[in-house]
Design a protein around this nucleic acid. Structure first.
Lengths: 195, 195
DNA sequence: GCAACATCTTGACACTCGTCAAGACTTTCT
DNA sequence: AGAAAGTCTTGACGAGTGTCAAGATGTTGC
């Protein structure tokens, strides 16, 4: 039973890899199995359903997301340090893990069509929003400026610039990461200047 | 040959309807045909491919998008009028055409995985960015404030808040449209207050 | 060693998919 | 009217899908 959950995680990792490469629309259970060391039938031993498998994957993914910038927030001693560090970290994950990010956007989009994914998508969205808010509120603290924006709005703005940067990054535009860095700085500043 | 292009448009409309209801992943040619008054074989008479059909659809969709807020921009006589009008118009299309919007996001996301869609997605994205920029620059003109943001950044921010609002709208959150309206006003203001 | 259980493979099933070809129906032209 | 071109339907094909059951293989306990 310990081995059971371990293997579930192992298969979920293979599924995440496949999904991030092919996208939701073209990912099949056989393809997932081929990206693991097992045959396709085993997936129905560890997961009841295809939906069950993907839902489990999404939850696994969530854990990885939640704490991506937490070290940064904890370590920053000044507002400008946090600002540039955050911008650099976003640009880095854009370059290093673009496939995982496009997978997340793909699954979140699927939740717009299939209700079975909606709950998890909204939950992860909330986690990401909290993550952004920790950065933003810490920044306000360090800069001693009042916050005039809601967590939702702040998250939406950063999500927008990141998603657009991802599109250009995967399209081969070499300035995508640099532009993202500029945008993040600009957006972060703009949050505190609203009257 | 005139009838030919007319029927292509007719079938493309059926395809758009199907895509907006089911999403890219679950849309088949037979389903598209069933949403038209023809049988499934006819699609290969008017389109060489499934990719050809969907590409054509996306182009059709683009035309509808390009001018959505142009009347608003032309009619506005003051900054605050443009601001509230823009926010209201976004909230309205969020409520009226959520399925078309989720389709656009779905197809743009597909372009992150399938290169065949990338060119069209980037092209439409540019059209949308220009559309936003017409509003933003006109607003700056009316308010006599200098613009300190790039078209790309401005578009990314509005796209972010709209996409998040769409997610909550389709999830049944009744305050989605109202929140979007607030966010749009806030984002628009923040564009001009960056030092 | 043997039985009981857990794990995994194999192969099949019913179904859907994109594609295409053969032919029926409709329209147009002479 | 009859031929020719255009338009549409039907049915089939090979491939791929999720699902599941039967059995092979591996592991554990006595």
């Amino acid at each position: 039973m310990d081995k059971f959950t371990e293997r579930r995680g192992q298969l979920a990792a293979s599924a995440l890899k496949t999904l991030s490469e092919l996208g939701y629309a073209r990912t099949s259970l056989r393809e997932i199995a081929q990206n693991s060391e097992f045959s396709h039938g085993v997936l129905h031993y560890y997961f009841t359903d295809k939906v069950d498998l993907i839902t489990f994957c999404v939850r696994e993914y969530k854990i990885e997301c939640a704490t991506r910038y937490d070290d940064l927030v904890a370590a920053a001693t000044s507002a400008s340090e946090l600002r540039t560090g955050f911008a650099a970290a976003m640009a880095e994950t854009l370059c290093e893990e673009p496939h995982m990010h496009r997978l997340w956007y793909d699954l979140r989009n699927q939740s717009l069509f299939e209700e079975s994914f909606r709950k998890d998508a909204l939950e992860i969205d909330q986690v990401l929003q909290d993550m952004i808010w920790r950065i933003v509120s810490r920044y306000a603290e360090l800069a001693s400026t009042p916050l005039t924006v809601t967590p939702r709005t702040a998250y939406a703005m950063f999500d927008g610039v990141f998603q657009l940067a991802l599109l250009h990054q995967l399209a081969g535009h070499e300035d995508a990461a640099g532009n993202l860095q500029d945008d993040v700085v600009r957006v972060l500043d703009s949050l505190f200047l609203v009257s």
